[in-house]
Write a protein that binds this DNA or RNA. Structure first.
Lengths: 222, 222
DNA sequence: ACGGACCTTGATGCGTTCTTGACGAGCGAG
DNA sequence: CTCGCTCGTCAAGAACGCATCAAGGTCCGT
Protein backbone atom coordinates (compact mmCIF):
# COMPACT_ATOMS: atom_id res chain seq x y z
CA UNK A 1 0.00 0.00 0.00
CA UNK A 2 1.35 3.37 -0.99
CA UNK A 3 1.82 5.66 1.97
CA UNK A 4 1.16 9.37 1.46
CA UNK A 5 2.00 12.15 3.87
CA UNK A 6 -0.23 15.20 3.39
CA UNK A 7 1.13 18.46 4.78
CA UNK A 8 -1.28 21.39 4.91
CA UNK A 9 -2.52 23.82 7.52
CA UNK A 10 -6.05 24.20 6.14
CA UNK A 11 -8.35 21.67 7.79
CA UNK A 12 -10.81 21.48 4.91
CA UNK A 13 -8.13 20.63 2.37
CA UNK A 14 -6.60 18.13 4.76
CA UNK A 15 -9.99 16.54 5.24
CA UNK A 16 -10.82 16.45 1.55
CA UNK A 17 -7.50 14.89 0.63
CA UNK A 18 -7.60 12.37 3.40
CA UNK A 19 -11.04 11.15 2.31
CA UNK A 20 -10.19 11.06 -1.37
CA UNK A 21 -6.87 9.33 -0.89
CA UNK A 22 -8.25 6.80 1.54
CA UNK A 23 -10.99 6.00 -0.97
CA UNK A 24 -8.27 5.18 -3.51
CA UNK A 25 -6.66 2.84 -1.01
CA UNK A 26 -3.71 4.96 -0.10
CA UNK A 27 -2.47 4.96 3.47
CA UNK A 28 -2.59 8.59 4.63
CA UNK A 29 -0.86 10.50 7.37
CA UNK A 30 -1.22 14.24 7.90
CA UNK A 31 0.88 17.04 9.31
CA UNK A 32 -0.18 20.63 9.89
CA UNK A 33 3.16 22.37 9.93
CA UNK A 34 6.68 21.92 8.65
CA UNK A 35 8.20 20.59 11.85
CA UNK A 36 5.52 17.95 12.18
CA UNK A 37 5.96 17.07 8.52
CA UNK A 38 9.68 16.43 8.91
CA UNK A 39 9.09 14.40 12.05
CA UNK A 40 6.35 12.35 10.43
CA UNK A 41 8.43 11.71 7.35
CA UNK A 42 11.29 10.46 9.49
CA UNK A 43 9.07 8.23 11.61
CA UNK A 44 6.69 6.91 9.02
CA UNK A 45 8.72 6.86 5.79
CA UNK A 46 5.95 7.74 3.35
CA UNK A 47 6.20 6.80 -0.30
CA UNK A 48 5.01 10.25 -1.34
CA UNK A 49 4.66 13.69 0.25
CA UNK A 50 1.98 16.19 -0.74
CA UNK A 51 3.22 19.50 0.59
CA UNK A 52 1.49 22.85 0.88
CA UNK A 53 4.03 25.64 0.62
CA UNK A 54 2.09 28.03 2.85
CA UNK A 55 2.81 26.59 6.27
CA UNK A 56 2.54 28.53 9.51
CA UNK A 57 5.92 27.70 11.03
CA UNK A 58 8.45 27.58 8.22
CA UNK A 59 8.97 28.19 4.54
CA UNK A 60 7.82 25.32 2.37
CA UNK A 61 11.06 25.33 0.41
CA UNK A 62 12.93 24.73 3.65
CA UNK A 63 10.74 21.72 4.29
CA UNK A 64 11.77 20.39 0.88
CA UNK A 65 15.40 20.91 1.77
CA UNK A 66 14.88 19.22 5.09
CA UNK A 67 13.46 16.17 3.37
CA UNK A 68 15.98 16.12 0.56
CA UNK A 69 18.77 16.08 3.08
CA UNK A 70 18.19 12.40 3.68
CA UNK A 71 15.51 11.01 1.38
CA UNK A 72 14.47 11.00 -2.25
CA UNK A 73 10.80 10.48 -1.47
CA UNK A 74 8.70 12.10 -4.22
CA UNK A 75 7.26 15.48 -3.29
CA UNK A 76 4.23 17.09 -4.92
CA UNK A 77 3.90 20.73 -3.97
CA UNK A 78 0.57 22.50 -3.54
CA UNK A 79 0.64 26.26 -3.59
CA UNK A 80 -1.63 29.23 -3.95
CA UNK A 81 1.14 31.16 -5.62
CA UNK A 82 1.17 30.69 -9.36
CA UNK A 83 4.28 32.79 -10.01
CA UNK A 84 6.95 31.31 -12.18
CA UNK A 85 9.68 32.05 -9.65
CA UNK A 86 7.85 30.18 -6.90
CA UNK A 87 7.51 27.13 -9.08
CA UNK A 88 11.14 27.22 -10.14
CA UNK A 89 12.32 27.58 -6.55
CA UNK A 90 10.26 24.65 -5.32
CA UNK A 91 11.14 22.37 -8.22
CA UNK A 92 14.83 23.17 -8.02
CA UNK A 93 14.78 22.58 -4.28
CA UNK A 94 13.86 19.02 -5.07
CA UNK A 95 10.10 18.90 -5.58
CA UNK A 96 8.82 16.56 -8.26
CA UNK A 97 5.67 18.42 -9.23
CA UNK A 98 3.94 21.71 -8.54
CA UNK A 99 0.17 22.10 -8.49
CA UNK A 100 -1.47 25.50 -8.23
CA UNK A 101 -4.44 25.97 -5.94
CA UNK A 102 -7.30 25.78 -6.52
CA UNK A 103 -6.72 22.36 -8.03
CA UNK A 104 -8.93 19.56 -9.20
CA UNK A 105 -8.75 16.47 -7.08
CA UNK A 106 -8.76 14.30 -10.20
CA UNK A 107 -5.73 16.12 -11.48
CA UNK A 108 -3.87 15.74 -8.20
CA UNK A 109 -4.66 12.05 -8.11
CA UNK A 110 -3.41 11.65 -11.67
CA UNK A 111 -0.20 13.45 -10.78
CA UNK A 112 0.21 11.23 -7.75
CA UNK A 113 -0.15 8.21 -9.99
CA UNK A 114 2.33 9.65 -12.47
CA UNK A 115 4.94 10.34 -9.81
CA UNK A 116 4.57 7.02 -8.01
CA UNK A 117 4.64 5.15 -11.31
CA UNK A 118 7.90 6.84 -12.22
CA UNK A 119 9.61 5.97 -8.96
CA UNK A 120 8.33 2.44 -8.60
CA UNK A 121 9.16 1.20 -12.09
CA UNK A 122 12.96 1.43 -11.88
CA UNK A 123 12.89 -0.58 -8.69
CA UNK A 124 11.25 -3.55 -10.31
CA UNK A 125 14.09 -4.58 -12.55
CA UNK A 126 15.93 -6.72 -9.99
CA UNK A 127 13.34 -8.89 -8.29
CA UNK A 128 15.56 -11.43 -6.57
CA UNK A 129 19.15 -11.76 -5.40
CA UNK A 130 21.15 -14.63 -4.07
CA UNK A 131 22.77 -14.51 -0.63
CA UNK A 132 24.67 -17.57 0.35
CA UNK A 133 22.36 -20.56 0.08
CA UNK A 134 19.22 -18.43 -0.01
CA UNK A 135 17.29 -16.65 -2.73
CA UNK A 136 15.85 -13.32 -1.63
CA UNK A 137 12.81 -11.97 -3.46
CA UNK A 138 12.77 -8.25 -2.74
CA UNK A 139 9.38 -7.56 -4.29
CA UNK A 140 7.61 -10.56 -2.82
CA UNK A 141 9.42 -10.21 0.50
CA UNK A 142 10.14 -13.90 0.60
CA UNK A 143 13.27 -15.94 1.16
CA UNK A 144 13.90 -19.53 0.24
CA UNK A 145 14.57 -22.06 2.97
CA UNK A 146 11.91 -20.84 5.35
CA UNK A 147 13.93 -17.85 6.48
CA UNK A 148 11.88 -14.95 7.83
CA UNK A 149 13.04 -11.37 8.28
CA UNK A 150 11.57 -8.67 10.49
CA UNK A 151 10.48 -5.37 8.91
CA UNK A 152 13.63 -3.58 9.98
CA UNK A 153 15.80 -6.39 8.67
CA UNK A 154 14.00 -6.20 5.32
CA UNK A 155 14.44 -2.47 5.13
CA UNK A 156 18.15 -2.76 5.76
CA UNK A 157 18.65 -5.65 3.36
CA UNK A 158 16.70 -3.91 0.62
CA UNK A 159 18.86 -0.82 0.65
CA UNK A 160 21.99 -2.92 0.46
CA UNK A 161 20.68 -5.36 -2.13
CA UNK A 162 19.46 -2.61 -4.43
CA UNK A 163 23.01 -1.32 -4.65
CA UNK A 164 25.00 -4.49 -5.21
CA UNK A 165 28.70 -4.07 -4.79
CA UNK A 166 28.33 -0.46 -3.73
CA UNK A 167 29.37 0.83 -0.35
CA UNK A 168 26.49 2.34 1.63
CA UNK A 169 27.57 4.61 4.44
CA UNK A 170 26.27 3.89 7.89
CA UNK A 171 24.88 7.40 7.92
CA UNK A 172 22.81 6.68 4.85
CA UNK A 173 21.54 3.40 6.22
CA UNK A 174 20.57 4.94 9.54
CA UNK A 175 18.85 7.83 7.77
CA UNK A 176 16.86 5.56 5.54
CA UNK A 177 15.83 3.00 8.10
CA UNK A 178 15.56 4.88 11.37
CA UNK A 179 15.37 8.51 10.25
CA UNK A 180 17.70 11.50 10.38
CA UNK A 181 17.70 11.69 14.17
CA UNK A 182 19.57 8.41 14.47
CA UNK A 183 22.68 9.25 12.45
CA UNK A 184 24.97 8.28 15.29
CA UNK A 185 23.33 5.13 16.58
CA UNK A 186 25.70 2.71 14.92
CA UNK A 187 24.78 0.07 17.51
CA UNK A 188 21.52 -0.45 15.68
CA UNK A 189 23.38 -1.22 12.50
CA UNK A 190 25.74 -3.63 14.19
CA UNK A 191 22.85 -5.36 15.89
CA UNK A 192 20.85 -5.85 12.71
CA UNK A 193 23.77 -6.75 10.52
CA UNK A 194 24.55 -9.54 12.95
CA UNK A 195 20.99 -10.81 12.67
CA UNK A 196 20.96 -10.59 8.88
CA UNK A 197 24.21 -12.50 8.71
CA UNK A 198 22.93 -15.08 11.13
CA UNK A 199 19.90 -15.64 8.95
CA UNK A 200 21.50 -15.45 5.53
CA UNK A 201 25.22 -16.07 5.59
CA UNK A 202 26.57 -19.58 5.55
CA UNK A 203 29.22 -18.68 8.12
CA UNK A 204 27.93 -15.65 10.04
CA UNK A 205 31.31 -15.04 11.64
CA UNK A 206 32.97 -14.71 8.23
CA UNK A 207 30.44 -12.99 6.00
CA UNK A 208 30.88 -13.21 2.26
CA UNK A 209 27.94 -11.12 1.08
CA UNK A 210 27.18 -8.65 3.83
CA UNK A 211 30.54 -6.99 4.17
CA UNK A 212 31.67 -4.47 6.77
CA UNK A 213 33.86 -1.65 5.59
CA UNK A 214 35.33 -0.46 8.89
CA UNK A 215 34.70 3.18 9.60
CA UNK A 216 32.67 3.67 6.46
CA UNK A 217 29.64 1.47 6.05
CA UNK A 218 28.41 -1.81 4.67
CA UNK A 219 28.33 -3.41 1.27
CA UNK A 220 26.25 -6.17 -0.32
CA UNK A 221 28.46 -8.41 -2.43
CA UNK A 222 26.45 -10.65 -4.80
CA UNK B 1 24.64 15.77 -22.49
CA UNK B 2 20.91 15.35 -21.99
CA UNK B 3 19.02 14.81 -25.25
CA UNK B 4 15.56 16.34 -25.57
CA UNK B 5 13.05 15.67 -28.33
CA UNK B 6 10.61 18.53 -28.79
CA UNK B 7 7.35 17.65 -30.55
CA UNK B 8 5.17 20.57 -31.65
CA UNK B 9 3.54 21.75 -34.83
CA UNK B 10 3.81 25.46 -34.11
CA UNK B 11 7.03 26.79 -35.61
CA UNK B 12 7.40 29.67 -33.17
CA UNK B 13 7.18 27.43 -30.10
CA UNK B 14 9.57 24.97 -31.68
CA UNK B 15 11.98 27.77 -32.38
CA UNK B 16 11.72 29.28 -28.90
CA UNK B 17 12.26 25.95 -27.19
CA UNK B 18 15.14 24.98 -29.40
CA UNK B 19 16.96 28.21 -28.65
CA UNK B 20 16.29 28.10 -24.92
CA UNK B 21 17.22 24.46 -24.53
CA UNK B 22 20.35 24.77 -26.61
CA UNK B 23 21.41 27.72 -24.46
CA UNK B 24 21.12 25.41 -21.40
CA UNK B 25 23.39 22.90 -23.12
CA UNK B 26 20.75 20.35 -23.95
CA UNK B 27 20.96 18.48 -27.22
CA UNK B 28 17.71 19.15 -29.07
CA UNK B 29 15.86 17.35 -31.84
CA UNK B 30 12.45 18.39 -33.13
CA UNK B 31 9.47 16.71 -34.71
CA UNK B 32 6.38 18.40 -36.13
CA UNK B 33 3.89 15.57 -35.99
CA UNK B 34 3.24 12.36 -34.14
CA UNK B 35 4.63 9.99 -36.73
CA UNK B 36 7.87 11.91 -36.94
CA UNK B 37 8.04 12.02 -33.16
CA UNK B 38 7.80 8.24 -32.83
CA UNK B 39 10.38 7.75 -35.57
CA UNK B 40 12.78 10.25 -34.01
CA UNK B 41 12.41 8.73 -30.56
CA UNK B 42 13.21 5.28 -31.92
CA UNK B 43 16.21 6.49 -33.89
CA UNK B 44 17.70 8.98 -31.49
CA UNK B 45 16.77 7.67 -28.03
CA UNK B 46 16.23 11.00 -26.34
CA UNK B 47 16.51 11.35 -22.56
CA UNK B 48 13.33 13.41 -22.42
CA UNK B 49 10.37 14.17 -24.68
CA UNK B 50 8.48 17.47 -24.64
CA UNK B 51 5.22 16.72 -26.36
CA UNK B 52 2.47 19.04 -27.57
CA UNK B 53 -0.86 17.27 -27.47
CA UNK B 54 -2.33 19.20 -30.41
CA UNK B 55 -0.64 17.52 -33.33
CA UNK B 56 -1.98 17.54 -36.89
CA UNK B 57 -1.79 13.83 -37.67
CA UNK B 58 -2.71 11.96 -34.52
CA UNK B 59 -3.96 12.37 -30.99
CA UNK B 60 -1.26 13.26 -28.49
CA UNK B 61 -2.35 10.56 -26.09
CA UNK B 62 -1.74 7.99 -28.81
CA UNK B 63 1.77 9.32 -29.20
CA UNK B 64 2.28 8.73 -25.49
CA UNK B 65 1.00 5.18 -25.85
CA UNK B 66 3.25 4.67 -28.84
CA UNK B 67 6.27 5.70 -26.81
CA UNK B 68 5.30 3.84 -23.67
CA UNK B 69 5.02 0.67 -25.66
CA UNK B 70 8.78 0.32 -25.65
CA UNK B 71 10.41 3.03 -23.57
CA UNK B 72 10.12 4.72 -20.20
CA UNK B 73 11.66 7.95 -21.44
CA UNK B 74 10.21 10.85 -19.40
CA UNK B 75 7.47 12.78 -21.21
CA UNK B 76 6.43 16.33 -20.42
CA UNK B 77 3.17 17.25 -22.10
CA UNK B 78 2.36 20.72 -23.38
CA UNK B 79 -1.25 21.49 -24.06
CA UNK B 80 -3.59 24.36 -24.64
CA UNK B 81 -6.38 22.48 -22.98
CA UNK B 82 -6.54 23.07 -19.25
CA UNK B 83 -9.39 20.70 -18.55
CA UNK B 84 -8.98 18.25 -15.75
CA UNK B 85 -9.97 15.29 -17.91
CA UNK B 86 -7.31 16.10 -20.49
CA UNK B 87 -4.63 16.19 -17.84
CA UNK B 88 -5.78 12.96 -16.27
CA UNK B 89 -5.86 11.19 -19.63
CA UNK B 90 -2.39 12.30 -20.58
CA UNK B 91 -0.85 11.54 -17.19
CA UNK B 92 -2.51 8.14 -16.95
CA UNK B 93 -1.38 7.33 -20.46
CA UNK B 94 2.16 7.57 -19.15
CA UNK B 95 3.11 11.25 -19.24
CA UNK B 96 5.29 12.48 -16.39
CA UNK B 97 4.16 16.08 -16.29
CA UNK B 98 1.54 18.31 -17.88
CA UNK B 99 2.11 21.99 -18.58
CA UNK B 100 -0.69 24.24 -19.76
CA UNK B 101 -0.08 26.72 -22.53
CA UNK B 102 0.73 29.51 -22.41
CA UNK B 103 3.62 28.51 -20.18
CA UNK B 104 6.66 30.26 -18.80
CA UNK B 105 9.93 29.04 -20.22
CA UNK B 106 11.51 29.17 -16.77
CA UNK B 107 8.84 26.90 -15.42
CA UNK B 108 9.23 24.41 -18.21
CA UNK B 109 12.97 24.35 -17.71
CA UNK B 110 12.51 23.77 -13.99
CA UNK B 111 10.13 20.91 -14.70
CA UNK B 112 12.62 19.46 -17.15
CA UNK B 113 15.28 19.61 -14.45
CA UNK B 114 12.92 18.00 -11.94
CA UNK B 115 12.07 15.12 -14.26
CA UNK B 116 15.62 14.46 -15.44
CA UNK B 117 16.93 14.68 -11.90
CA UNK B 118 14.70 11.83 -10.84
CA UNK B 119 15.48 9.57 -13.74
CA UNK B 120 19.19 10.24 -13.97
CA UNK B 121 20.05 9.66 -10.33
CA UNK B 122 19.18 5.95 -10.27
CA UNK B 123 21.24 5.41 -13.40
CA UNK B 124 24.25 6.47 -11.39
CA UNK B 125 27.21 7.31 -13.56
CA UNK B 126 30.27 5.48 -12.35
CA UNK B 127 33.28 7.73 -12.16
CA UNK B 128 36.20 5.37 -11.99
CA UNK B 129 39.88 6.06 -12.41
CA UNK B 130 42.79 3.82 -13.15
CA UNK B 131 45.84 3.76 -10.89
CA UNK B 132 48.54 1.39 -11.94
CA UNK B 133 47.03 -2.06 -12.29
CA UNK B 134 43.92 -1.18 -10.31
CA UNK B 135 40.56 0.38 -11.15
CA UNK B 136 39.22 2.68 -8.44
CA UNK B 137 35.48 3.29 -8.21
CA UNK B 138 35.01 6.42 -6.18
CA UNK B 139 31.26 6.16 -5.68
CA UNK B 140 31.10 2.46 -4.84
CA UNK B 141 34.32 2.72 -2.85
CA UNK B 142 35.67 -0.36 -4.52
CA UNK B 143 39.05 -1.22 -5.99
CA UNK B 144 39.83 -4.07 -8.30
CA UNK B 145 42.19 -6.78 -7.15
CA UNK B 146 40.86 -7.04 -3.64
CA UNK B 147 42.57 -3.88 -2.47
CA UNK B 148 40.98 -2.24 0.56
CA UNK B 149 41.53 1.29 1.78
CA UNK B 150 40.88 2.76 5.21
CA UNK B 151 38.56 5.77 5.52
CA UNK B 152 41.42 8.24 5.74
CA UNK B 153 43.11 6.69 2.74
CA UNK B 154 39.90 7.00 0.75
CA UNK B 155 39.45 10.59 1.76
CA UNK B 156 42.92 11.48 0.63
CA UNK B 157 42.69 9.55 -2.62
CA UNK B 158 39.32 11.06 -3.46
CA UNK B 159 40.57 14.62 -3.24
CA UNK B 160 43.49 13.80 -5.48
CA UNK B 161 41.53 11.68 -7.95
CA UNK B 162 38.77 14.25 -8.32
CA UNK B 163 41.39 16.70 -9.56
CA UNK B 164 43.41 14.63 -11.99
CA UNK B 165 46.66 16.20 -13.04
CA UNK B 166 46.18 19.09 -10.66
CA UNK B 167 48.57 19.99 -7.89
CA UNK B 168 46.95 19.93 -4.46
CA UNK B 169 48.83 21.75 -1.72
CA UNK B 170 49.62 19.92 1.47
CA UNK B 171 47.80 22.65 3.33
CA UNK B 172 44.64 21.93 1.36
CA UNK B 173 44.88 18.18 1.83
CA UNK B 174 45.46 18.47 5.57
CA UNK B 175 42.66 20.97 5.85
CA UNK B 176 40.19 18.72 4.04
CA UNK B 177 41.05 15.44 5.68
CA UNK B 178 42.14 16.32 9.21
CA UNK B 179 40.65 19.78 9.66
CA UNK B 180 41.98 23.32 9.89
CA UNK B 181 43.91 22.65 13.10
CA UNK B 182 46.30 20.23 11.41
CA UNK B 183 47.67 22.46 8.66
CA UNK B 184 51.24 21.82 9.76
CA UNK B 185 51.24 18.09 10.41
CA UNK B 186 52.86 17.12 7.15
CA UNK B 187 53.98 13.79 8.61
CA UNK B 188 50.38 12.61 8.40
CA UNK B 189 50.46 13.21 4.68
CA UNK B 190 53.75 11.44 4.26
CA UNK B 191 52.46 8.52 6.27
CA UNK B 192 49.28 8.07 4.23
CA UNK B 193 50.83 8.74 0.85
CA UNK B 194 53.21 5.89 1.57
CA UNK B 195 50.31 3.58 2.32
CA UNK B 196 48.36 4.62 -0.74
CA UNK B 197 51.37 4.02 -2.94
CA UNK B 198 52.01 0.69 -1.30
CA UNK B 199 48.46 -0.39 -2.06
CA UNK B 200 48.07 1.10 -5.52
CA UNK B 201 51.35 1.79 -7.24
CA UNK B 202 53.16 -0.95 -9.07
CA UNK B 203 56.50 0.21 -7.69
CA UNK B 204 55.79 2.12 -4.47
CA UNK B 205 59.32 3.47 -4.31
CA UNK B 206 58.97 5.10 -7.72
CA UNK B 207 55.39 6.33 -7.95
CA UNK B 208 53.91 7.05 -11.34
CA UNK B 209 50.43 8.23 -10.37
CA UNK B 210 50.69 9.64 -6.87
CA UNK B 211 53.39 12.22 -7.40
CA UNK B 212 55.16 14.34 -4.81
CA UNK B 213 55.84 17.92 -5.75
CA UNK B 214 58.60 18.79 -3.26
CA UNK B 215 57.76 21.73 -1.07
CA UNK B 216 54.33 22.20 -2.60
CA UNK B 217 52.02 19.24 -2.45
CA UNK B 218 50.86 16.14 -4.26
CA UNK B 219 49.39 15.41 -7.66
CA UNK B 220 47.35 12.54 -9.08
CA UNK B 221 48.55 11.65 -12.56
CA UNK B 222 46.05 9.44 -14.46
C1' DA C 1 -3.67 -9.84 31.06
C1' DC C 2 -0.37 -12.86 29.09
C1' DG C 3 3.21 -14.46 25.91
C1' DG C 4 5.98 -13.83 22.05
C1' DA C 5 8.17 -11.25 18.53
C1' DC C 6 10.50 -7.30 17.68
C1' DC C 7 13.02 -3.23 18.76
C1' DT C 8 16.12 -0.53 21.72
C1' DT C 9 20.07 0.05 24.60
C1' DG C 10 24.33 -0.92 27.36
C1' DA C 11 28.70 -3.27 28.14
C1' DT C 12 32.85 -6.01 26.93
C1' DG C 13 36.79 -7.84 24.36
C1' DC C 14 39.46 -7.70 20.31
C1' DG C 15 41.44 -6.34 15.97
C1' DT C 16 42.27 -2.48 13.03
C1' DT C 17 43.29 2.16 12.24
C1' DC C 18 45.08 6.49 13.61
C1' DT C 19 48.36 9.26 15.70
C1' DT C 20 52.77 10.50 16.92
C1' DG C 21 57.75 10.60 17.24
C1' DA C 22 62.16 9.48 15.39
C1' DC C 23 65.78 8.66 11.91
C1' DG C 24 68.21 8.64 7.57
C1' DA C 25 68.36 9.87 2.51
C1' DG C 26 68.24 13.22 -1.01
C1' DC C 27 68.80 17.86 -2.49
C1' DG C 28 69.72 22.69 -2.99
C1' DA C 29 71.93 26.81 -0.90
C1' DG C 30 75.46 29.09 1.29
C1' DC D 1 81.73 20.68 2.18
C1' DT D 2 78.38 21.47 5.43
C1' DC D 3 73.99 23.04 6.82
C1' DG D 4 69.09 23.08 6.65
C1' DC D 5 65.07 21.49 4.79
C1' DT D 6 61.75 18.11 3.11
C1' DC D 7 60.52 13.66 2.15
C1' DG D 8 60.20 8.44 2.73
C1' DT D 9 60.19 4.91 6.07
C1' DC D 10 59.66 2.48 10.40
C1' DA D 11 57.76 1.46 14.85
C1' DA D 12 54.68 1.58 18.96
C1' DG D 13 51.06 3.14 21.94
C1' DA D 14 46.53 5.22 21.83
C1' DA D 15 42.12 5.47 20.12
C1' DC D 16 38.52 3.82 17.66
C1' DG D 17 35.07 0.72 15.51
C1' DC D 18 33.09 -3.66 15.29
C1' DA D 19 31.06 -8.28 16.69
C1' DT D 20 28.90 -10.28 20.21
C1' DC D 21 26.26 -11.08 24.38
C1' DA D 22 22.74 -9.73 27.35
C1' DA D 23 18.98 -7.28 29.33
C1' DG D 24 14.97 -4.37 29.35
C1' DG D 25 11.06 -2.26 26.75
C1' DT D 26 7.25 -1.95 23.46
C1' DC D 27 3.72 -3.52 20.69
C1' DC D 28 0.90 -6.99 18.95
C1' DG D 29 -2.44 -10.92 18.87
C1' DT D 30 -4.37 -14.82 21.67
Amino acid sequence: MTRILVVDDEPQILRALRINLAARHYAVAVAEDGAAALRQAADWHPDLVVLDLGLPDMDGVDVIHGLRGWTHVPIIVLSGRAGSADKVDALDAGADDYVTKPFGVDELLARIRAVTRRTSVPDGDEPSVRVGDHVVDLTGKTISGGVRLTPTEWHLLEILARNPGKLISQRQLLHEVWGPAYSKETNYLRQYMVQLRRKLERDPAHPVHLITEPGMGYRFQP
